[in-house]
Amino acid sequence: MNSFNSKRIPNIMAVIIIIMLGAGLKIVVDYSLTVDKEAGYLWAQKIFYYHVPSAWTAFLGYFIVMIAGVQFLRTGNRKWDQIGVASAEFGTFFCLLVLITGPIWGQAAWGQPWTWEPRLLTTLILFLLYIGYFMLRQFGGHYERVARNSAVLGIIAFLDVPIVYLSLKFWSADTQAHPQLGMSEQSSLVLNVFFFNLATFTLLFIYMVWYRIHILKLKQKQLELTHGL
């Protein structure tokens, strides 16, 4: 990743993301279809064009935390820790979006904001775990140990995901079903809008992580200057 200092590429990217977000909103509001027949084609169902891409982006973030954790433990290169923290922060941000948009849909569709739905619950558990992750970074002591321990935590957190998901799936087999529709059953219009938003969110995620790493590097440089290196 090259630096943020040459402002050109980041600025162009930011403009593209803003245009995509605006266009995405317009398309979702005015042109997109609602897909769930059982729920009676609720307009509120359009929130899924944001809910699902947020969830995918959050999991992408946490996946990167795990990869960065493995790489950090292998190489000890500070770069991997910075990638890990930045991904954890914005993974958690998108996680929060999932946890906000989920209940909005729930209220409209089922008349109650929270249901014990396995995927929503897995997201909540991950969210809580990552609150702990940030606390560990805060209270863990000196940076070098914190970096190592949070790398380990990032790895075990992601390992836990499939077990959490499976157990919740069996656990809530009798509770409210989540609209779960196969990708292949969707009309191409629905899919196009969905993938457009997914692309926007992924780009936004990359941009945020990139910017965050830039700030972390500046902080590191500032620290090095104060120590007179």
Binding site: H142, Y143, E144, Q220, L223, E224, H227, L229
Partner: peptide
């Protein structure tokens, strides 16, 4: 090489 709080010791 070893550092504490990013400060090289």
């Amino acid at each position: 090489s070893k550092s504490f709080f990013m400060r090289p010791v």
